[in-house]
């Protein structure tokens, strides 16, 4: 029984550690996709965020400041995507693919240039990382300590999901961004600046993806390595579709995928099931969900379509 409770605690803990990066990126993806811009460059934006977070953590020695800088770096890539897709009418999938080349390439390039040709940044002192909220409150090894032994940003992310839900469904901007993704021509005739709304959403998606990447390097581990972001960006996109393009749905999907990751972490210790097989679960679940619930999941109508402003 004790072992069971202990393992349950560890499982919840692993889930709470794996979910925030996915959720941050997924919330960003919600903004972009709902406004009608496909962003598969999330993965590249997360990598650049992860790198920036690790470097700024070393430079500034303050986790929160580094976290914010990583968001800005992601936002910079959001600007590139927005300019290419919105102003220059580029194919959105291809522009995203370009960012997935450019982002990780730049991150490792700069890393090697800064740290004596090493593709890893030096390990950070714990004081440079994001703080833990419940450090030392519960006795070591107890259930609650196992569960709550996560970085404070993790809690913030769930609050952020609620904020996003509020923005989406309770504010004027939210109504605009949802409308812009469905029928930009109609919006334009009503005087909504389609380009402006989309720019804000795409840049925001870069910002949040950058934060998601930085969560990995500033909380989960303590350095940047080329392998820190392996597919999280794509899982986030899967979560958004699985969650029917809403922040709440994306949060549930991210928790589910985070749980898969938690199971993977535990299974890797017990060595019973191959972690590679468990890693497939989020992708297979997404495919199955699409097959079973197709028609119910409504894709924003103008998603991926080029919108040319009338003069």
């Amino acid at each position: 029984m004790d072992v069971l409770i202990k393992n349950l605690g560890l499982l919840i803990n692993a889930t709470l550690i794996a979910t925030p990066p996915l959720l941050l990126a997924a919330l960003g993806s919600c903004f972009s996709e709902r406004s009608g811009v496909v962003n598969i460059g999330i993965e590249g934006m997360m990598t650049i965020g992860a790198f920036t977070g690790a470097v700024m953590g070393l430079v500034l020695g303050n986790g929160w400041a580094a976290f914010f800088c990583a968001g800005l770096a992601g936002a910079a890539f959001g600007v590139i995507h927005a300019v290419a897709c919105i102003s220059f009418h580029a194919d959105q999938t291809i522009a995203g693919t370009a960012i997935n080349f450019f982002g990780p390439g730049l991150a490792v390039f700069l890393c090697k240039a800064m740290f004596d040709n090493s593709s890893d940044t030096p390990a950070m002192d714990p004081s440079c990382k994001l703080p833990k909220l419940f450090e030392g409150v519960f006795p070591v090894g107890s259930f609650w300590n196992n569960v709550l032994n996560v970085y404070s940003a993790a809690y913030l992310v769930f609050i952020l999901a609620f904020v996003c839900w509020f923005v989406f469904y309770k504010t004027k901007f939210g109504a605009h961004l949802r409308a812009v993704g469905e029928h930009p021509e109609a919006c334009e005739s009503l005087g909504i600046d389609v380009y402006k709304v989309r720019y804000i959403c795409v840049i925001l998606s870069g910002f949040l993806a950058g934060l998601g990447g930085a969560f990995v390097t500033l909380a989960t581990i303590n350095q940047f390595r080329p392998s820190v972001i392996v597919g999280q960006g794509f899982i986030a996109i899967a979560a958004v579709i699985f969650g029917k393009f809403s922040p709440g749905g994306a949060m549930k999907a991210c928790l589910l995928f985070g749980l898969c990751n938690g199971i993977k972490t535990l299974a890797a210790q017990s060595n019973t099931v191959s972690p590679n097989l468990i890693s497939m679960i989020p992708y297979i679940v997404t495919i199955l969900a699409l097959v079973l619930f197709v028609g119910k999941a409504h894709t924003p109508a103008a998603n991926g379509k080029i919108f040319v402003k009338s003069k």
């Binding site: 580029a90 291809i94 960012i99 450019f102 990780p104 730049l106 490792v108 390039f109």
Partner: peptide
């Protein structure tokens, strides 16, 4: 990795 940077820009 400069190759990835160049190629990413070329696609863009």
């Amino acid at each position: 990795e400069v190759v990835n940077i160049i190629m990413g820009c070329v696609i863009l």
